[in-house]
Amino acid sequence: MEFEDLYQEIILDHYRKPRNICEGDDTGHICVKHENPLCGDELSLHMKMNRNDTIKDICYRARGCSISISSASIMTEAVKGLKKNEAMELIETVRRMMHGEVVGDGLGDIEALQGVAKFPVRVKCALLAWMALKDALQSPYRQR
């Protein structure tokens, strides 16, 4: 049972057809790179903010397992157009979800990540993209 909880169809779909992979040039983007040395997952996140503090554009390049790739794909879809504080709130919600807390519904594809909480060793995979986002949002270069 748990196995199906982890690899839900939505996760596999994002893994097989990842959304928002970076194409072309990153000029003017905030770039952060995160990795999980234990399993070799690597993710570089590129983000552009609007003047009114909303995420205008976000994309990533990644190497990793299905959980880290699909989480990055789901994350980029979910946060595009969000204000900085809304995105920060969402990061916190996902973090709590990964620690087994019930966080309610209405989160769209993000809910598919819920099953990861039952696999403690994979929580880091799921959080990789979200932690990179947090870093990017707090980056001092954000205003440029």
Binding site: F3, C39, D41, G64, S66, R122
Partner: peptide, 15 residues
């Protein structure tokens, strides 16, 4: 062109 991550393979095999 890539590989299926060994952690995915391990979890799947376990199932």
């Amino acid at each position: 062109g890539g590989i299926i991550h060994p952690h995915d393979v391990g979890t799947y095999f376990d199932s």
